[in-house]
C-alpha cells in the first residue's frame, strides 16, 4: 500500500460531517470511509441522511448523506457496482419494485419524508421523474409517450391542453422540430438519441421538481450525447437534477457538484471543480486519475 500520511487536516464538524481543511491534497487514507466534503446544498430539494440499502442480507449502500439542490446538477460517479444507481433509485423509491430490497435512513423531498405513510409513491414519482440508462419509450406513438404521464395524473382538462403540454415538453427536450410532423408514429422508430430525448420529454411532461438520470448517455453516440448534455444544462434552470454517469468528462461538463461513490460508501462530495482538480480523498484521486474503475 502506498504510504499516504494521515495528517490531521480533517476536522469533525458538529453534525458528524467530515469537512476538509482547504488546500489539502489527497491526504485522506484509502481505509477511511467517512464522507469528505460538504453534503449540503444551498437550496436543497431532496435531503438524504444516513441512507443504507440492503439487498437481502447484503448491504449495498452504507449511511450515505447528501442533498440535491434546486437549479443544480449533481453528478454521482464511481466504479461499477459502487451503488450510485442503487442510490439514485432510492430517491423516487424505484427500489420498491425489487424483491428483497430494503432502504433505511431518511430521505425527504421539500421537507417531507418520502417514506412517510402520507407520501404516496405515485405522487412521489410524479414529483421526482426518472430517465433510464437505455432509452425506453413505450411502444406507442410519440404523442402517446409524452401524453401518458399528464393523462394518468389528470394534469390536463381537455385535449387542447394535453396537446399544449406535449408540445412544450417536446420543445424543452429539443425534439419538437424533428418530430412535429410525425407525432403519430411509434416512439420506438426514433434513433437512440431521439428516443432518449423523448424519454426526457416524457419525464418533464408531468412537471416534476427533481429529475433523476441513470447514465442517460451510455447508449448514445458522441453527437447525441452532446445534445443531451446541452439539454441537461438548460433543464437545470427549472429542475434539480441528479445524474449517474460513468464518464468523468461528462460529469465535469454538466454538473455543479460531484459525489464520488466507492463500494457503497459516499467517499467525497464537493464542487465539481474542486473534486476533479483537487480531490481530498486518495480513492477519489485514484479514480479520477484512472488508476482503477
Amino acid at each position: 500500500m502506498d504510504t499516504v500520511s494521515v495528517e490531521n487536516e480533517v476536522i469533525m464538524a458538529d453534525d458528524g460531517i467530515v469537512k476538509p481543511v482547504a488546500g489539502g491534497r489527497a491526504t485522506i487514507d484509502r481505509d477511511n470511509r467517512e464522507t469528505v466534503g460538504d453534503v449540503t446544498a444551498k437550496n436543497p430539494r431532496m435531503r438524504c441522511r444516513e441512507v443504507s440499502v440492503f439487498y437481502g442480507e447484503k448491504q449495498a449502500i452504507h449511511d450515505v448523506s447528501l442533498d440535491v439542490g434546486s437549479n443544480e446538477v449533481i453528478a454521482l460517479i464511481g466504479p461499477s457496482g459502487c451503488g450510485k444507481s442503487t442510490f439514485l433509485r432510492c430517491l423516487n423509491r424505484m427500489n420498491d419494485t425489487i424483491d428483497g430490497c430494503r432502504v433505511i435512513g431518511d430521505i425527504s423531498l421539500d421537507g417531507d419524508s418520502i417514506f412517510d405513510t402520507k407520501m404516496d409513491v405515485v405522487q412521489l414519482r410524479a414529483q421526482v421523474g426518472m430517465v433510464f440508462q437505455k432509452p425506453n419509450p413505450f411502444p406507442k406513438s410519440i404523442f402517446e409517450n409524452v401524453a401518458y404521464g399528464p393523462r394518468i395524473h389528470g394534469l390536463t382538462r381537455d385535449k387542447t391542453e394535453l396537446e399544449a403540454v406535449v408540445h412544450t415538453s417536446l420543445d424543452r427536450a429539443g425534439l419538437l422540430d424533428e418530430v412535429k410532423d410525425r407525432l403519430g408514429e411509434p416512439g420506438t422508430g426514433l434513433s437512440g438519441g431521439q428516443q432518449q430525448r423523448l424519454c426526457i420529454a416524457r419525464a418533464i411532461a408531468v412537471n416534476p421538481e427533481v429529475i433523476l438520470m441513470d447514465e442517460p448517455c451510455s447508449a448514445l453516440d458522441p453527437i447525441a450525447t452532446a445534445r443531451i448534455e446541452e439539454l441537461i444544462d438548460e433543464l437545470r434552470e427549472q429542475y434539480a437534477i441528479a445524474i449517474v454517469t460513468h464518464s468523468m468528462q461528462q460529469a465535469a461538463r454538466v454538473s455543479q457538484r460531484t459525489a464520488y461513490f466507492h463500494l457503497g460508501d459516499l467517499i467525497e462530495i464537493g464542487e465539481t471543480n474542486q473534486v476533479f482538480t483537487n480531490p481530498h480523498h486518495q480513492l477519489t484521486e485514484d479514480y479520477i486519475t484512472g488508476r482503477f474503475g
Binding site: M94, V122, R125, A126, G129, M130, F132, N136, Y148, V206
Partner: peptide, 8 residues
C-alpha cells in the same frame, strides 16, 4: 420502469 418512473 418507464411506466413506474412517470408515476403510474
Amino acid at each position: 420502469d418507464a411506466a413506474l418512473g412517470v408515476g403510474a
